[in-house]
Amino acid sequence: MTAGTAETSSSSSFDPETYESTHVHSVYEAIAPHFSSTRHKPWPLVADFLASLPPGSVGLDVGCGNGKYLAVNPSLWLMGSDRSANLVSLARENDGRGRRRQRLNEVTVADSLALPYRASSADFAISIAVLHHLSTRSRRRAAVRAILDCLRPGSGEDGRNGEGKAMLYVWALEQGSSRRGWDEDASQDQLVPWVTKAGTGKTHKESDSRKPENDTTWHRYYHLYRKGELEEDVQAVGGVVLHSGYEKDNWWAICTRGLEM
């Protein structure tokens, strides 16, 4: 389903906050337990990034969802936040293997555009599958900047020593081989269905057309990123892209806050 009202609409009545409240926040609040039950396995590149950090590194997981990354590397001090209080409650106890964690995770309820973190204090940040839920480019860029602002600036001669790094992951427009079949010609603004099966707490495959009457279909808003768009957004707000790439229907970038603007 194409979300024609997002961004492309010239109507002055479009209010991104209201739109995201309906098409992102309310949906996650409603589907949180079902959503969480399908999200256990850390994505390998994210797990590698977390494993590469020295013990005692302090970091943020902005949009932590059900918290599946919070316990991946227990020698990090990783604080999660999410806009959905229901997901945050699940994230508090998630040990990353779908079980209850002994040591509870550190999590807060917060909006990615109003993060409650001390500036320049984090060694690292991750934001996985989050930025694509913001419905205008200026909001997506503001969210990138808000994450970069939390990172420690570098020191030393080249200004790179101890510099904080953020890993960002977003859904790609170019996913011709996925079951959704989007490609370069598709609309970048989409409402993606999530079906909760009545009574069972299980989800259908989203493409399942044999949907009984009592199921509920929710639509989440996504902005699908074109090749190069994530890097452009990082650079547009003064950040520096260290590495970037494509993995399984997603674009990713590792970046730093850049020189003070």
């Binding site: 302090v58 807060t108 409650p116 973190y117 500036a119």
Partner: peptide, 24 residues
């Protein structure tokens, strides 16, 4: 919320970000 986390948290209000009084 652990005491250590308090050390990395501040007010979420934009106009407080630049104020020393908002941290901790």
């Amino acid at each position: 919320m652990k005491v250590i986390s308090l050390n990395f948290l501040t007010c979420a209000v934009k106009s407080c970000k630049s104020s020393g009084a908002a941290f901790p």
